[in-house]
């Protein structure tokens, strides 16, 4: 365990800036998100609540140029965009968002390796910061980890007042700390303080879901049209819960054409709540709202676990906190019926 005084952190960030673009949580754009660190702001060292825009935006860009294409006679020449992904260091990422990133890594390196995403991931360092003030919408502790989880970052910082205790998790993390000014060995007293801070943070997460029960019930709910109609009634089909979800990874692909027939191909976030989702290639198979809401919940709690043996939700609570109608996934999960619907009630 290492330790760094809060006042020494800016100097460390400056040092890291030599090799990385350093990002840190900031509200300066008008919304809290990971922002290129300006060398000045240190507010996040004392108060670092979950950002509105999840850090997935640093890996899965909302505007990602995939390649340029040029029409020459009857054929096209493609030029991949970008080249090497930028080296970025995300300072102050929360355990829920780091876990979410680990979760969507699985899909991006599954059957098809998505190098736009993976390239950014490979060139990124995650400096985690334990979450000390979870929101009332947070429920991470129900999902097998907690606000101090260090497994998914390169190093993990725990706030002990005027300093952070640092847990070196990966070799990358170790390297970054080696010989860094202001970084000292943590004392037994420091680690004790850190353990207390971690326990205090976990105790603040009061919203709970019962994962075991959900795993049993969710497959049975698939055909329960009545249930889904009821719980989807107030959904307005906007994109907030998916766009702000750290584990939602759908994207749409669009070409921007010039007159000559040349242009560029881009991708941007897409959302299964939109009535026009997948309309471009064909039709949206989920024309009714209840089917879309079911898809969203099942994707996270049924389909993803089937494929990757992990629930695609980390309890960050953004979908609850930011929803304009307070559609609350924890309430939906808690109200899943205990049994399958009778045959007559099926869709």
């Amino acid at each position: 365990m290492k330790k760094i005084k809060k006042q020494d952190v800016p100097a460390l960030l400056v040092k890291w800036q030599q090799d990385f673009t350093v990002f840190a949580p900031s509200k300066k754009s008008g919304v809290s998100r990971m922002e290129v660190w300006d060398g000045q702001d240190t507010a996040f060292l004392d108060r670092n609540r979950n950002t509105v825009i999840p850090p997935k935006a640093n890996f899965l860009l909302n505007i990602e140029k995939m390649f340029d294409f040029r029409k020459e006679g009857g054929s096209y020449t493609l030029e991949p965009a970008g080249g090497e992904a930028p080296r970025q260091l995300l300072f102050g990422i929360h355990p829920c968002d780091a876990r979410a990133t680990a979760i969507i890594d699985m899909v991006f390196k599954d059957a098809y390796e998505d190098n736009y995403y993976l390239g950014r991931r490979r060139n990124s360092v995650l400096v985690g910061m334990g979450c000390t003030s979870p929101y009332d919408s947070c429920f991470c502790t129900s999902l097998g980890f907690g606000p101090a989880e260090a497994a998914d970052v390169d190093m993990m910082l725990t706030d002990i007042g005027d300093a952070f205790v640092i847990e070196e998790v990966t070799d990358k993390g170790k390297e970054l700390l080696a010989g860094a000014e202001g970084v000292t060995e943590a004392t037994a007293d420091d680690t004790k303080k850190a353990d207390a801070a971690k326990a205090a943070a976990a105790a603040k997460v009061t919203r709970k879901i019962n994962v075991e029960e959900i795993r049993k019930r969710i497959p049975l709910s698939f055909d329960d049209k009545k249930f889904w109609e009821k719980v989807s009634a107030k959904c307005v089909s906007c994109g907030i819960c998916t766009f702000l979800c750290p584990t939602c990874y759908c994207f749409d692909i669009n070409d921007e054409m010039l007159k000559s027939g040349s242009g560029a191909r881009y991708r941007n976030w897409d959302c299964c709540s939109f009535p026009l989702y997948t309309k471009m290639p064909a039709e949206n198979p989920r024309a009714e709202k209840w089917r879309r809401v079911r898809q969203k919940v099942h994707h996270k709690y049924a389909f993803y676990p089937e494929l990757f043996n992990i629930i695609a939700c980390t309890g960050c609570g953004r979908c609850i906190r930011q929803c304009p109608v307070n559609w609350d996934i924890t309430q939906i999960l808690a109200s899943l019926p205990a049994g399958a619907p009778a045959a007559a009630e099926k869709k």
Partner: peptide
């Protein structure tokens, strides 16, 4: 700004 650069 190119869109990609702006988003970084």
């Amino acid at each position: 700004r190119d869109g990609t650069k702006a988003a970084q």
